[in-house]
Structures are given as structure tokens and as C-alpha cells.
Amino acid sequence: MAPLSWDLQLLNVCAALLLLLAFAMLSQRRIVTLVDLLALQGAVLCVATALVAWRTGKSHLYLSALLTLGLKVLFLPWLLRRLIRRLDVYWDTEPMANIGGTMLLGLLIVIFAFGLAQPISALANTSTKSTIGIAVAVTLLAFLTMITRKKAMSQIVGFLSMENGLFFAAMSATYGMPMVVELGVALDVLVAMLVLGVFFFQIRERFESLDLHHFESLKEEK
């Protein structure tokens, strides 16, 4: 096999780490650790973005790496931790029945995502095109994380992780979205987080729990 240049090798390592972290989130029971993993995923994404920026010389990618660092590594995890403290769910764990089964399902999803991304990779003309499959897989795995969780907090973490995956997909397919779109998405995520933070308190006041399956019994009450 032809030896790759070191920056591309490092990028591949970053992509592999993102995939690994997605699986770690899928199998993590403790909510605080889930937030730590999210911050770590953001950090890896930031490194990957900076690497692509260095490789292609596109200055707006440096900006989005900075944005990732500020928003996804520092601010959002801080906000989530603060929420966890104030909601007093620090020691909460998610009762998950079958982690092994979920992970095997995750593996199938990864294979599906790799197959799905193959035609896209064939069309893309970026040097990072081989990582598109991983980006799609990370997005779908985050989606699976959201589906398998019942607690509102871990669903939010899944949502943010999905955004990470989408961001990485855009970066590997086309070297990132236009700056305006990226800023818009970042703002959206931020506002969504702030609104949901308020929402959590309302949910807990109403149901005395953050477990979302209480929503299902809403109609039968009264």
C-alpha cells in the first residue's frame, strides 16, 4: 500500500477516534461521563478541522476549528455540567438493558453507513474523501444513541454528537460548509441548548423526573 503523508495519517487517526467515541457514547451508562465524551469528541473534531485547514490552506476552516473549540469543547459541556449540577442528576445512570445488542446493531449501522458513503466518496474530489463513511457512521450512531435513551439529558448529548458528525461529514466531503451556514448552525445549536435547558426544569417540575417515557402517558391523565 502506498504510504500516506503524515497529516493524512493523523487525520485518519482522528476519524477512527471519532468513531470510537461514538461507540463509547452508545455504551456509556453514566450521564456525566457522557458529557465528558462529548467534549472529547469536540476536541478531536477541532484537531481534525485544524489539520484539514493546515493541509488545504483554507483560512475559514481555522475559524470553524476555533468555533468548535469554543462552543463544543468548552461552552456546551460547561453548560451541560452546570445543568446536571442544578438539576441534581449528577449520579444518574441510564438503565440500559442490552448494551451488547445495541453495540452489535451499531456495527451493522457502521457497515450500512460505509456502503452508503461509497458513491459519495467516489464523487468527492477532496483528499479527505475516505473519511466520509466514518462521518456518516458517527451521525447515525449518535442518532441511535438518541433512540435508545430515555433520559432527556442523554438525548441532548446524542443530538449534539449528531451535529458533530454532520460537521465532520461536511468537512470531509467539501472542506466545510460556507462560513455563513456554519455560523448559523452553531447559533441554532446554542439557542436550542439554552431553550432546552429551561425546558428541562419545566419537564422536571411537571413529572418530577427527566425520564421522557412519562410523555407517553400524557393523554390518559386527568
Binding site: M1, L4, Q9, N12, A15, A16, L19, L20, F23, S27, I99, G100, M103, L104, G106, L107, V110, I111, F114, S130, T131, G133, I134
Partner: peptide
Amino acid sequence: EFLATAFLFAVLGLLVHLLLGA
């Protein structure tokens, strides 16, 4: 669970190799 994780790691290695060739 522990061994499923080991299997997962190995399969991830396989998939990553197939996709990235590394």
C-alpha cells in the same frame, strides 16, 4: 459485555482498515 466490546474493537479495526486502508 466486556467481550462484546473486544469484538467491537476488532471489527472496528477491520472496518477502519477497509475504509481508510490504514
